[in-house]
Amino acid sequence: MQLELKNVSYTYGKGTVFEVNALSNIDLAIEEGQFIGIIGHTGSGKSTLIQHFNALMEPTEGKVLFEGEDIWGEKYDRRALRSKVGLVFQYPEHQLFETDVLTDVAFGPKNQGLSKEEAEARAREALVQVGFPEKFYGHSPFELSGGQKRRVAIAGVLAMNPKVLILDEPTAGLDPKGRDEILDQISYLHDQRGITIILVSHSMEDVARYADRLIVVNDGRIPYDGTPREVFAHYKELEKIGLAAPQITYIMHDLAAKGLPVDVQATTIEEAKKSILEALAGKGAKR
């Protein structure tokens, strides 16, 4: 098992009157190579959860294991861990600071102790992987467009060669095409490099399309954990906790209710299209 949380709880302001439980007794195991979607409304505890994955936060109770080792063990190298478990925060372009794109992306690898040349080689590789055009490598990151800045920032984490890549709403504020481009790039990384992806998103449509496992966070707990089809089958319960299913799910349920024998668990447009066409053809044949 690559990443494991064992009975993890996190309490803000422990021991004061302001005690707030952000996470309660979380048990979670993440296998190498999974594409995981994390959904939950604002304040559900999902940000706290992902910061436990790379030791930015220490659980007040329980254990976090990476490749079987306790990351809060006495001699554990947590800085090294952070390059293995990369975390891209929301609006990551706010962390850019260098005078040119290449140097900024090389910041992570340099911190890992690589030489300037090695670090830059890694940076180039990462920039290619996020689809950033080479002619801008020497530009100041502050002059780029929003979408390009975002790519540079993601490359900055990717250049550390992480085995797990966590992204907190990587598409926030981007236009539809920009959203698709970033998500396709992430999905490509997952397929080509076999990186474990953990994607935090507010878009049910996006997680349904890309993730093979969905984790729902609510009130510091994980009420649902399964494939998108399984999780979205609970769409009524999801609504109660401020979430929803993709629009497609609702359409399929409506159609089924009207007597069209479609697959109600379809969550993407492709699945829905296929199922509706089959159902309509079946109906036609009977006539």
């Binding site: 236009d175 539809p176 095409k177 920009g178 698709d180 449509e205 993709p246 629009q247 497609i248 359409i251 447009i269 829905a272 299209k273 509706i276 066409l277 309509l280």
Partner: peptide, 23 residues
């Protein structure tokens, strides 16, 4: 719309796809 880097709501896209398939 897609040419202009935009999109359509999922329902619209599904309907459009079905229409393209001859429904």
């Amino acid at each position: 719309l897609k040419k202009y880097r935009l999109d359509v709501p999922q329902v619209t896209e599904l309907a459009y796809e079905l229409r393209k398939s001859g429904i």
